[in-house]
Amino acid sequence: MSIDTKTVARIAHLARLNLPEEEQAKMASDLGKILDWVTQLDDVNVEGIEPLSNVHDMALRRRDDVISDGGHTQDILANAPAKTADFFTVPKVVE
């Protein structure tokens, strides 16, 4: 299956990856090859088969709805690339 650079640019935007134009052709070719290779799954008849998302087919465990942790503001901010007081800061989003 071939993928064009327009599709690559669209996927890169969905993934929030800045992929320079000169790298898009190579990425398109790599993805095309991988997609060709996975088409072999078309040979498998999966009618009536349930998808497997957890190998032990278990339901997620529940816990009591109580606050059991907290008060780690400084720990959480410790690796922030930019912060002001107790907040993460980002480029302006509202004019």
Binding site: A15, N18, P20, P81, F88, V90, P91
Partner: peptide
């Protein structure tokens, strides 16, 4: 995403910052 931890590469707006950081 360059907001809470890890590398941040600046951009003109929030989306560009995400894309530059991850790129």
């Amino acid at each position: 995403d360059g907001v809470r931890y890890g590398l941040r590469v600046t951009g003109d707006n929030l989306n560009n910052m995400y894309e530059n950081t991850r790129g």
